[in-house]
Write a protein that binds this DNA or RNA. Structure first.
Lengths: 221, 221
DNA sequence: CTATTATTCAAGAAAATAATTGAATAATAG
DNA sequence: CTATTATTCAATTATTTTCTTGAATAATAG
Protein backbone atom coordinates (compact mmCIF):
# COMPACT_ATOMS: atom_id res chain seq x y z
CA UNK A 1 0.00 0.00 0.00
CA UNK A 2 0.99 3.59 -0.64
CA UNK A 3 2.94 4.77 2.43
CA UNK A 4 0.93 7.99 2.59
CA UNK A 5 -2.30 6.05 2.69
CA UNK A 6 -0.84 3.68 5.21
CA UNK A 7 0.19 6.56 7.45
CA UNK A 8 -3.30 8.04 7.43
CA UNK A 9 -4.92 4.68 8.06
CA UNK A 10 -2.67 4.08 11.02
CA UNK A 11 -3.23 7.54 12.44
CA UNK A 12 -7.00 7.49 12.15
CA UNK A 13 -7.04 3.97 13.51
CA UNK A 14 -5.46 5.40 16.66
CA UNK A 15 -7.85 8.34 16.84
CA UNK A 16 -10.74 5.96 16.53
CA UNK A 17 -9.69 4.25 19.75
CA UNK A 18 -11.05 7.28 21.56
CA UNK A 19 -14.22 7.18 19.49
CA UNK A 20 -14.77 3.49 20.10
CA UNK A 21 -14.37 4.04 23.82
CA UNK A 22 -17.20 6.58 23.84
CA UNK A 23 -19.43 4.71 21.41
CA UNK A 24 -21.10 2.64 24.10
CA UNK A 25 -23.87 4.20 26.23
CA UNK A 26 -22.70 2.26 29.25
CA UNK A 27 -19.15 3.46 28.95
CA UNK A 28 -20.36 7.03 28.61
CA UNK A 29 -22.33 6.64 31.79
CA UNK A 30 -19.31 5.19 33.54
CA UNK A 31 -17.15 8.09 32.41
CA UNK A 32 -19.77 10.59 33.51
CA UNK A 33 -19.84 9.08 36.95
CA UNK A 34 -16.06 9.03 37.14
CA UNK A 35 -15.99 12.74 36.29
CA UNK A 36 -17.87 13.25 39.56
CA UNK A 37 -15.04 11.56 41.41
CA UNK A 38 -13.10 8.30 41.50
CA UNK A 39 -14.91 5.06 42.19
CA UNK A 40 -14.35 1.38 42.72
CA UNK A 41 -15.65 -1.16 40.24
CA UNK A 42 -18.32 -2.23 42.66
CA UNK A 43 -19.73 1.27 43.08
CA UNK A 44 -19.69 1.88 39.36
CA UNK A 45 -21.52 -1.39 38.78
CA UNK A 46 -24.20 -0.47 41.28
CA UNK A 47 -24.70 3.01 39.89
CA UNK A 48 -25.00 1.83 36.31
CA UNK A 49 -27.02 -1.32 37.02
CA UNK A 50 -24.45 -3.46 35.24
CA UNK A 51 -23.00 -6.72 36.45
CA UNK A 52 -19.60 -6.47 38.06
CA UNK A 53 -17.94 -8.47 35.29
CA UNK A 54 -19.50 -6.36 32.60
CA UNK A 55 -18.49 -3.16 34.38
CA UNK A 56 -14.97 -4.44 34.73
CA UNK A 57 -14.83 -5.23 31.05
CA UNK A 58 -16.06 -1.81 30.06
CA UNK A 59 -13.44 -0.30 32.34
CA UNK A 60 -10.77 -2.37 30.63
CA UNK A 61 -11.87 -0.94 27.32
CA UNK A 62 -11.66 2.57 28.73
CA UNK A 63 -8.27 1.82 30.18
CA UNK A 64 -6.98 0.47 26.87
CA UNK A 65 -8.07 3.64 25.14
CA UNK A 66 -6.35 5.60 27.90
CA UNK A 67 -9.46 7.41 29.05
CA UNK A 68 -9.28 6.13 32.61
CA UNK A 69 -6.53 5.27 35.03
CA UNK A 70 -6.68 2.68 37.76
CA UNK A 71 -5.03 2.24 41.09
CA UNK A 72 -5.15 -0.78 43.31
CA UNK A 73 -6.10 0.13 46.87
CA UNK A 74 -6.05 -2.96 49.02
CA UNK A 75 -8.81 -5.26 47.88
CA UNK A 76 -10.33 -2.58 45.67
CA UNK A 77 -9.39 -1.09 42.34
CA UNK A 78 -10.13 2.59 42.10
CA UNK A 79 -10.78 4.10 38.68
CA UNK A 80 -10.28 7.74 37.75
CA UNK A 81 -10.79 9.69 34.55
CA UNK A 82 -7.53 10.50 32.77
CA UNK A 83 -6.55 14.18 32.35
CA UNK A 84 -8.57 16.08 29.71
CA UNK A 85 -11.20 13.37 29.53
CA UNK A 86 -13.92 15.27 31.37
CA UNK A 87 -13.41 18.30 29.13
CA UNK A 88 -13.66 16.09 26.11
CA UNK A 89 -16.84 14.56 27.47
CA UNK A 90 -18.21 18.01 28.06
CA UNK A 91 -17.53 18.93 24.47
CA UNK A 92 -19.25 15.76 23.33
CA UNK A 93 -22.29 16.41 25.51
CA UNK A 94 -22.43 19.91 24.12
CA UNK A 95 -22.58 18.65 20.57
CA UNK A 96 -25.14 16.03 21.47
CA UNK A 97 -27.43 18.44 23.30
CA UNK A 98 -27.27 20.94 20.49
CA UNK A 99 -27.56 18.56 17.58
CA UNK A 100 -29.69 15.68 18.79
CA UNK A 101 -33.24 16.82 19.35
CA UNK A 102 -34.25 13.53 20.95
CA UNK A 103 -32.28 14.39 24.07
CA UNK A 104 -34.48 17.36 24.91
CA UNK A 105 -37.56 15.24 24.17
CA UNK A 106 -36.49 12.45 26.47
CA UNK A 107 -35.75 14.92 29.23
CA UNK A 108 -39.08 16.63 28.76
CA UNK A 109 -40.99 13.37 28.76
CA UNK A 110 -39.24 12.21 31.90
CA UNK A 111 -39.94 15.42 33.82
CA UNK A 112 -43.46 15.79 32.46
CA UNK A 113 -46.08 16.19 35.16
CA UNK A 114 -43.47 16.58 37.89
CA UNK A 115 -43.64 19.77 39.94
CA UNK A 116 -40.71 22.16 40.35
CA UNK A 117 -38.75 21.03 37.30
CA UNK A 118 -38.68 24.27 35.36
CA UNK A 119 -35.17 25.57 34.61
CA UNK A 120 -34.11 28.22 37.12
CA UNK A 121 -32.58 31.59 36.46
CA UNK A 122 -29.07 31.45 37.77
CA UNK A 123 -28.81 35.16 38.60
CA UNK A 124 -32.01 35.09 40.61
CA UNK A 125 -30.85 32.00 42.42
CA UNK A 126 -27.53 33.59 43.34
CA UNK A 127 -29.07 36.74 44.75
CA UNK A 128 -31.72 34.84 46.66
CA UNK A 129 -29.04 32.60 48.09
CA UNK A 130 -27.19 35.64 49.41
CA UNK A 131 -30.27 37.07 51.10
CA UNK A 132 -30.95 33.63 52.58
CA UNK A 133 -34.31 33.69 50.92
CA UNK A 134 -34.00 30.03 49.92
CA UNK A 135 -32.56 26.80 51.24
CA UNK A 136 -30.15 25.04 48.90
CA UNK A 137 -29.88 21.27 49.29
CA UNK A 138 -27.12 19.09 47.91
CA UNK A 139 -28.76 15.68 47.73
CA UNK A 140 -25.75 13.69 46.56
CA UNK A 141 -24.00 11.19 48.84
CA UNK A 142 -22.14 12.96 51.65
CA UNK A 143 -18.78 11.95 50.23
CA UNK A 144 -19.40 13.85 47.03
CA UNK A 145 -20.59 16.86 48.98
CA UNK A 146 -17.33 16.84 50.88
CA UNK A 147 -15.33 16.74 47.67
CA UNK A 148 -16.98 19.95 46.49
CA UNK A 149 -20.36 21.66 46.72
CA UNK A 150 -22.03 24.94 45.90
CA UNK A 151 -21.33 27.65 48.46
CA UNK A 152 -24.07 27.79 51.03
CA UNK A 153 -25.53 24.37 50.24
CA UNK A 154 -26.64 21.93 52.91
CA UNK A 155 -25.70 18.27 52.55
CA UNK A 156 -28.82 16.13 52.69
CA UNK A 157 -28.21 12.89 50.77
CA UNK A 158 -31.36 11.65 49.10
CA UNK A 159 -31.64 8.57 51.27
CA UNK A 160 -31.45 10.67 54.43
CA UNK A 161 -33.86 13.30 53.22
CA UNK A 162 -36.91 11.61 54.70
CA UNK A 163 -35.43 11.80 58.17
CA UNK A 164 -34.35 15.41 57.83
CA UNK A 165 -37.71 16.82 56.84
CA UNK A 166 -38.36 18.19 60.32
CA UNK A 167 -35.34 20.47 60.00
CA UNK A 168 -36.44 22.01 56.72
CA UNK A 169 -38.50 25.20 56.40
CA UNK A 170 -42.08 25.01 55.12
CA UNK A 171 -42.30 28.74 54.46
CA UNK A 172 -39.21 29.04 52.29
CA UNK A 173 -38.44 27.75 48.84
CA UNK A 174 -36.14 24.74 48.82
CA UNK A 175 -33.79 24.26 45.88
CA UNK A 176 -32.25 20.81 45.34
CA UNK A 177 -29.37 19.95 43.07
CA UNK A 178 -27.17 16.94 42.40
CA UNK A 179 -24.78 15.95 39.62
CA UNK A 180 -26.40 17.54 36.65
CA UNK A 181 -29.25 17.34 34.15
CA UNK A 182 -29.08 13.55 33.79
CA UNK A 183 -28.82 12.74 37.46
CA UNK A 184 -32.14 11.92 39.04
CA UNK A 185 -31.30 12.42 42.69
CA UNK A 186 -32.55 15.99 42.76
CA UNK A 187 -35.65 14.99 40.80
CA UNK A 188 -36.52 12.42 43.41
CA UNK A 189 -35.74 14.82 46.22
CA UNK A 190 -37.99 17.52 44.81
CA UNK A 191 -40.78 15.01 44.28
CA UNK A 192 -40.58 13.82 47.86
CA UNK A 193 -40.44 17.34 49.26
CA UNK A 194 -43.39 18.56 47.26
CA UNK A 195 -45.42 15.51 48.31
CA UNK A 196 -44.76 16.36 51.93
CA UNK A 197 -45.97 19.90 51.57
CA UNK A 198 -42.71 21.71 50.99
CA UNK A 199 -42.15 24.19 48.23
CA UNK A 200 -39.27 22.60 46.33
CA UNK A 201 -37.73 23.17 42.93
CA UNK A 202 -34.85 21.54 41.11
CA UNK A 203 -31.65 23.20 39.99
CA UNK A 204 -30.76 21.33 36.83
CA UNK A 205 -27.09 22.22 36.84
CA UNK A 206 -24.80 19.99 38.82
CA UNK A 207 -21.62 20.75 40.72
CA UNK A 208 -19.42 20.23 37.67
CA UNK A 209 -21.61 22.54 35.57
CA UNK A 210 -21.44 25.08 38.34
CA UNK A 211 -17.68 24.86 38.40
CA UNK A 212 -17.50 25.10 34.64
CA UNK A 213 -19.52 28.31 34.71
CA UNK A 214 -16.71 29.77 36.80
CA UNK A 215 -18.66 29.79 40.04
CA UNK A 216 -16.89 28.86 43.22
CA UNK A 217 -17.29 25.65 45.16
CA UNK A 218 -16.59 24.82 48.79
CA UNK A 219 -15.03 21.62 50.06
CA UNK A 220 -15.16 19.71 53.34
CA UNK A 221 -17.94 19.45 55.85
CA UNK B 1 -37.87 -1.22 34.28
CA UNK B 2 -37.35 1.49 36.87
CA UNK B 3 -38.23 4.79 35.16
CA UNK B 4 -35.06 6.42 36.45
CA UNK B 5 -32.94 3.68 34.94
CA UNK B 6 -34.94 3.88 31.75
CA UNK B 7 -34.35 7.62 31.54
CA UNK B 8 -30.60 7.22 31.89
CA UNK B 9 -30.49 4.40 29.39
CA UNK B 10 -32.38 6.47 26.86
CA UNK B 11 -30.23 9.54 27.42
CA UNK B 12 -26.90 7.77 27.17
CA UNK B 13 -28.17 5.86 24.17
CA UNK B 14 -28.58 9.23 22.47
CA UNK B 15 -25.18 10.51 23.58
CA UNK B 16 -23.63 7.37 22.20
CA UNK B 17 -24.89 8.24 18.73
CA UNK B 18 -22.14 10.85 18.62
CA UNK B 19 -19.61 8.37 19.91
CA UNK B 20 -20.59 5.71 17.39
CA UNK B 21 -20.24 8.24 14.61
CA UNK B 22 -16.63 8.93 15.57
CA UNK B 23 -15.73 5.35 16.34
CA UNK B 24 -14.76 4.53 12.78
CA UNK B 25 -11.36 5.64 11.45
CA UNK B 26 -12.84 6.28 8.03
CA UNK B 27 -15.55 8.52 9.38
CA UNK B 28 -13.00 10.45 11.40
CA UNK B 29 -11.00 11.02 8.27
CA UNK B 30 -14.10 12.14 6.42
CA UNK B 31 -14.95 14.59 9.17
CA UNK B 32 -11.42 15.90 9.25
CA UNK B 33 -11.55 16.59 5.54
CA UNK B 34 -14.94 18.25 5.84
CA UNK B 35 -13.54 20.56 8.51
CA UNK B 36 -11.23 21.87 5.80
CA UNK B 37 -14.24 22.81 3.70
CA UNK B 38 -17.34 21.26 2.16
CA UNK B 39 -16.98 18.44 -0.35
CA UNK B 40 -18.98 16.25 -2.69
CA UNK B 41 -19.21 12.52 -2.10
CA UNK B 42 -16.94 11.88 -5.04
CA UNK B 43 -14.15 14.09 -3.72
CA UNK B 44 -14.41 12.60 -0.28
CA UNK B 45 -14.22 9.11 -1.74
CA UNK B 46 -11.12 9.99 -3.69
CA UNK B 47 -9.36 11.63 -0.76
CA UNK B 48 -10.04 8.73 1.58
CA UNK B 49 -9.45 5.95 -0.94
CA UNK B 50 -12.88 4.50 -0.23
CA UNK B 51 -15.41 3.33 -2.80
CA UNK B 52 -18.16 5.79 -3.58
CA UNK B 53 -20.82 3.53 -2.10
CA UNK B 54 -18.89 3.04 1.08
CA UNK B 55 -18.22 6.75 1.40
CA UNK B 56 -21.88 7.46 0.88
CA UNK B 57 -22.82 5.00 3.59
CA UNK B 58 -20.41 6.50 6.07
CA UNK B 59 -21.83 9.92 5.26
CA UNK B 60 -25.32 8.62 5.96
CA UNK B 61 -24.15 7.46 9.36
CA UNK B 62 -22.67 10.89 10.04
CA UNK B 63 -25.86 12.54 8.88
CA UNK B 64 -27.99 10.34 11.10
CA UNK B 65 -25.90 11.30 14.08
CA UNK B 66 -26.27 14.93 13.03
CA UNK B 67 -22.57 15.56 12.61
CA UNK B 68 -22.82 16.57 8.97
CA UNK B 69 -25.34 18.37 6.84
CA UNK B 70 -25.94 17.83 3.18
CA UNK B 71 -27.19 19.97 0.35
CA UNK B 72 -28.10 18.85 -3.12
CA UNK B 73 -26.40 21.00 -5.76
CA UNK B 74 -27.47 19.85 -9.19
CA UNK B 75 -26.13 16.41 -9.80
CA UNK B 76 -23.89 16.59 -6.74
CA UNK B 77 -24.53 16.31 -3.03
CA UNK B 78 -22.34 18.61 -0.97
CA UNK B 79 -21.55 17.65 2.61
CA UNK B 80 -20.59 20.04 5.37
CA UNK B 81 -19.72 19.59 9.04
CA UNK B 82 -22.55 20.62 11.37
CA UNK B 83 -21.91 23.51 13.77
CA UNK B 84 -19.64 22.69 16.74
CA UNK B 85 -18.44 19.49 15.13
CA UNK B 86 -14.96 20.71 14.24
CA UNK B 87 -14.44 21.99 17.78
CA UNK B 88 -15.53 18.65 19.13
CA UNK B 89 -13.15 16.90 16.78
CA UNK B 90 -10.38 19.20 17.91
CA UNK B 91 -11.06 18.27 21.50
CA UNK B 92 -11.00 14.61 20.57
CA UNK B 93 -7.74 14.96 18.69
CA UNK B 94 -6.30 16.75 21.70
CA UNK B 95 -7.14 13.88 24.00
CA UNK B 96 -5.84 11.35 21.52
CA UNK B 97 -2.54 13.13 20.97
CA UNK B 98 -1.98 13.55 24.67
CA UNK B 99 -3.09 10.14 25.81
CA UNK B 100 -2.23 7.76 23.00
CA UNK B 101 1.51 7.42 22.69
CA UNK B 102 1.23 5.40 19.48
CA UNK B 103 0.24 8.51 17.56
CA UNK B 104 3.55 10.21 18.14
CA UNK B 105 5.34 6.98 17.26
CA UNK B 106 3.50 6.57 13.99
CA UNK B 107 4.22 10.16 13.06
CA UNK B 108 7.88 9.79 13.94
CA UNK B 109 8.22 6.57 11.97
CA UNK B 110 6.56 8.12 8.94
CA UNK B 111 8.79 11.19 8.92
CA UNK B 112 11.93 9.27 9.80
CA UNK B 113 14.79 9.91 7.41
CA UNK B 114 12.95 12.72 5.66
CA UNK B 115 14.71 16.08 5.62
CA UNK B 116 13.13 19.30 6.89
CA UNK B 117 10.51 17.68 9.11
CA UNK B 118 11.57 19.07 12.47
CA UNK B 119 8.87 21.11 14.23
CA UNK B 120 9.34 24.84 13.67
CA UNK B 121 9.31 27.59 16.21
CA UNK B 122 6.25 29.66 15.51
CA UNK B 123 7.67 32.92 16.79
CA UNK B 124 10.78 32.62 14.67
CA UNK B 125 8.65 31.79 11.64
CA UNK B 126 6.47 34.84 12.15
CA UNK B 127 9.33 37.25 12.44
CA UNK B 128 11.18 35.75 9.50
CA UNK B 129 8.00 35.98 7.45
CA UNK B 130 7.81 39.70 8.20
CA UNK B 131 11.37 40.35 7.15
CA UNK B 132 10.73 38.33 3.98
CA UNK B 133 13.57 36.09 4.98
CA UNK B 134 11.64 32.98 3.93
CA UNK B 135 9.16 31.91 1.27
CA UNK B 136 5.97 30.37 2.62
CA UNK B 137 4.18 27.91 0.33
CA UNK B 138 0.60 26.73 0.70
CA UNK B 139 0.62 23.43 -1.17
CA UNK B 140 -3.08 22.60 -0.86
CA UNK B 141 -5.40 22.70 -3.87
CA UNK B 142 -5.97 26.26 -5.05
CA UNK B 143 -9.60 26.17 -3.97
CA UNK B 144 -8.65 25.63 -0.37
CA UNK B 145 -6.07 28.39 -0.56
CA UNK B 146 -8.77 30.75 -1.76
CA UNK B 147 -11.03 29.81 1.15
CA UNK B 148 -8.34 30.89 3.61
CA UNK B 149 -4.56 30.85 3.92
CA UNK B 150 -1.78 32.12 6.13
CA UNK B 151 -0.94 35.77 5.50
CA UNK B 152 1.91 36.08 3.05
CA UNK B 153 1.69 32.52 1.74
CA UNK B 154 2.00 31.66 -1.93
CA UNK B 155 -0.44 29.18 -3.45
CA UNK B 156 1.50 26.34 -5.10
CA UNK B 157 -0.67 23.21 -5.13
CA UNK B 158 1.44 20.09 -4.79
CA UNK B 159 0.68 18.83 -8.28
CA UNK B 160 1.77 22.13 -9.79
CA UNK B 161 4.88 22.42 -7.68
CA UNK B 162 7.11 20.68 -10.21
CA UNK B 163 6.31 23.28 -12.85
CA UNK B 164 6.83 26.21 -10.52
CA UNK B 165 10.30 25.33 -9.36
CA UNK B 166 11.91 27.91 -11.63
CA UNK B 167 10.08 30.66 -9.78
CA UNK B 168 11.30 29.62 -6.35
CA UNK B 169 14.45 30.95 -4.64
CA UNK B 170 17.41 28.63 -4.12
CA UNK B 171 19.09 30.92 -1.64
CA UNK B 172 16.19 31.31 0.74
CA UNK B 173 14.53 28.86 3.06
CA UNK B 174 11.20 27.60 1.75
CA UNK B 175 8.51 26.68 4.27
CA UNK B 176 5.62 24.51 3.09
CA UNK B 177 2.36 23.86 4.93
CA UNK B 178 -0.97 22.21 4.17
CA UNK B 179 -3.89 21.01 6.29
CA UNK B 180 -2.11 19.95 9.41
CA UNK B 181 0.01 17.28 11.05
CA UNK B 182 -1.77 14.36 9.37
CA UNK B 183 -1.88 15.83 5.89
CA UNK B 184 0.97 14.63 3.71
CA UNK B 185 0.89 17.30 1.00
CA UNK B 186 3.52 19.45 2.67
CA UNK B 187 5.63 16.37 3.40
CA UNK B 188 5.67 15.49 -0.27
CA UNK B 189 6.34 19.08 -1.25
CA UNK B 190 9.31 19.38 1.07
CA UNK B 191 10.72 16.06 -0.16
CA UNK B 192 10.47 17.15 -3.77
CA UNK B 193 12.00 20.56 -3.06
CA UNK B 194 14.92 19.15 -1.12
CA UNK B 195 15.58 16.61 -3.87
CA UNK B 196 15.80 19.43 -6.36
CA UNK B 197 18.34 21.36 -4.36
CA UNK B 198 16.10 23.75 -2.49
CA UNK B 199 16.30 24.34 1.20
CA UNK B 200 12.79 23.39 2.32
CA UNK B 201 11.21 22.66 5.68
CA UNK B 202 7.71 21.71 6.69
CA UNK B 203 5.40 23.68 8.93
CA UNK B 204 3.39 21.01 10.71
CA UNK B 205 0.48 23.21 11.65
CA UNK B 206 -2.28 23.57 9.09
CA UNK B 207 -4.56 26.47 8.31
CA UNK B 208 -7.14 25.39 10.86
CA UNK B 209 -4.49 25.08 13.57
CA UNK B 210 -3.20 28.49 12.61
CA UNK B 211 -6.67 29.93 12.92
CA UNK B 212 -7.20 28.20 16.23
CA UNK B 213 -4.03 29.76 17.60
CA UNK B 214 -5.67 33.11 16.99
CA UNK B 215 -3.50 34.03 14.03
CA UNK B 216 -5.10 35.76 11.10
CA UNK B 217 -5.83 34.26 7.70
CA UNK B 218 -6.34 35.85 4.31
CA UNK B 219 -8.93 34.81 1.77
CA UNK B 220 -9.20 35.06 -2.02
CA UNK B 221 -6.46 35.00 -4.61
C1' DC C 1 -3.53 -21.83 56.02
C1' DT C 2 -8.57 -21.02 54.88
C1' DA C 3 -12.35 -18.18 53.88
C1' DT C 4 -14.01 -14.03 52.09
C1' DT C 5 -14.37 -10.37 49.00
C1' DA C 6 -13.28 -7.46 44.84
C1' DT C 7 -11.87 -7.89 40.49
C1' DT C 8 -10.48 -9.96 36.21
C1' DC C 9 -10.35 -13.56 32.75
C1' DA C 10 -12.15 -16.72 29.20
C1' DA C 11 -15.53 -18.72 26.31
C1' DG C 12 -19.78 -18.55 23.89
C1' DA C 13 -24.18 -16.58 21.97
C1' DA C 14 -26.56 -12.70 20.10
C1' DA C 15 -26.42 -8.35 17.99
C1' DA C 16 -24.33 -4.60 15.54
C1' DT C 17 -21.09 -2.85 12.15
C1' DA C 18 -18.18 -2.46 7.86
C1' DA C 19 -17.06 -3.34 3.23
C1' DT C 20 -18.44 -5.20 -1.26
C1' DT C 21 -21.35 -5.75 -5.06
C1' DG C 22 -24.81 -4.77 -8.30
C1' DA C 23 -29.04 -2.43 -8.95
C1' DA C 24 -31.96 1.74 -8.39
C1' DT C 25 -32.69 6.96 -8.31
C1' DA C 26 -32.25 11.56 -9.52
C1' DA C 27 -30.53 15.44 -12.03
C1' DT C 28 -28.89 17.04 -16.22
C1' DA C 29 -27.17 17.32 -21.19
C1' DG C 30 -28.00 16.39 -25.79
C1' DC D 1 -36.88 10.86 -24.65
C1' DT D 2 -32.19 8.69 -23.97
C1' DA D 3 -27.71 8.62 -22.13
C1' DT D 4 -24.69 10.02 -18.63
C1' DT D 5 -23.16 10.91 -14.16
C1' DA D 6 -23.39 11.29 -8.99
C1' DT D 7 -25.38 9.30 -5.39
C1' DT D 8 -28.02 6.07 -2.70
C1' DC D 9 -30.10 1.63 -1.66
C1' DA D 10 -30.30 -3.31 -0.60
C1' DA D 11 -28.47 -7.71 0.15
C1' DT D 12 -24.57 -10.44 1.55
C1' DT D 13 -20.48 -11.69 4.04
C1' DA D 14 -16.90 -11.05 7.35
C1' DT D 15 -15.71 -8.90 11.49
C1' DT D 16 -16.42 -6.72 15.95
C1' DT D 17 -18.80 -5.75 19.92
C1' DT D 18 -21.73 -6.66 23.92
C1' DC D 19 -23.46 -9.28 27.53
C1' DT D 20 -23.65 -13.45 30.24
C1' DT D 21 -21.81 -17.13 32.82
C1' DG D 22 -18.69 -19.51 35.58
C1' DA D 23 -14.01 -19.96 36.84
C1' DA D 24 -9.53 -17.84 38.20
C1' DT D 25 -6.71 -14.31 40.79
C1' DA D 26 -5.33 -11.30 44.31
C1' DA D 27 -5.57 -9.05 48.69
C1' DT D 28 -6.95 -9.41 53.24
C1' DA D 29 -9.02 -11.11 57.78
C1' DG D 30 -9.28 -14.62 61.03
Amino acid sequence: MNPNRRFKDEIYEQFSRIGKAVSSPKRLELLDILCQGERTVEKLAKETALTIANTSQHLQVLKNSRLVEQEKQGLYVVYRPAPMVCDFLFSMRNVAENRIAEIEQIKKRFLEGKKGMEPMDREALLSRLETEDITLLDVRPAEEFRAGHINGALSVPLNELEFMLANLPKDQEIVAYCRGPYCVLSVQAVELLNQRGFNAVRLEEGVQDWKRMGLSLSTGK
